[in-house]
Simulated scan of single mutants.
Amino acid sequence: MMKIFSSLALVMGLMLSSVSSYAAEAASKTFVVITSESVETQGMALVLSLQALKNGSDVRILLCDHGGDIAKKDYQATPLQPLNATPQQLLKKAMSNGAKADVCALYLPNRGLGMDALIEGVSNAKPPQIGTYMADPSVRYFTF
Results as ranks from 00 to 15, higher is better:
C104S: 06
R60Y: 01
M15A: 12
K29R: 15
K100R: 03
N110H: 10
V139I: 03
S20W: 09
K92Q: 12
L83Q: 00
M1F: 12
S57T: 10
D116V: 13
Q81I: 08
P128T: 14
S49V: 03
A105T: 08
K29G: 05
M134S: 08
D65E: 08
N55S: 11
F31Y: 01
S28T: 07
N110L: 07
A45K: 04
M2T: 15
L8R: 08
Q81G: 09
K100Y: 04
T41W: 01
G56P: 11
G67V: 07
C64W: 02
A99D: 05
P137L: 09
D102K: 06
K126P: 08
V103E: 01
S7W: 14
D65S: 06
V33E: 02
L53F: 02
A9C: 10
Y107V: 05
Q88P: 07
A45F: 00
G131M: 15
N55D: 14
D58K: 13
I61F: 02
M2A: 13
Q51H: 10
T30V: 09
E120D: 14
A71M: 03
L106Y: 06
A85L: 11
G131Y: 10
V122M: 03
A9N: 00
T78Q: 15
T143Y: 12
A27T: 08
Q88L: 09
V32I: 12
A135S: 12
L80H: 01
G43P: 05
S17Y: 05
P82Y: 07
L50K: 10
P87Q: 03
K126V: 11
L118G: 03
Q129M: 10
S36C: 00
G43M: 01
L118E: 09
L63N: 02
D74H: 07
Q88I: 09
F142I: 05
A26Y: 06
A23F: 08
V39N: 02
T78N: 07
L16S: 08
A105H: 12
Q88R: 09
V32Q: 03
E25Q: 13
G13W: 01
G112F: 15
Q88G: 10
A85Q: 09
L53V: 06
L10E: 03
K93C: 05
Q51Y: 07
D136R: 14
L90V: 01
I61T: 06
Y22D: 02
L91I: 14
K3R: 15
P127L: 15
Q89Y: 01
C64D: 04
S96H: 07
M2I: 13
M44L: 11
V33P: 11
I61A: 06
I61K: 01
S28P: 02
P109F: 05
S6C: 11
E37Y: 14
D65L: 13
L10S: 12
I4E: 13
T30F: 00
A24M: 04
V33K: 08
L113R: 08
F144I: 06
R111V: 07
E37G: 14
E120T: 14
T143N: 14
I61Q: 10
C104K: 12
L10A: 00
C104L: 10
S38E: 05
S20H: 09
L113Q: 05
A52C: 02
L62M: 10
A101V: 05
K73E: 06
L90I: 10
T132I: 14
I4K: 15
M115V: 15
L83H: 10
I4S: 10
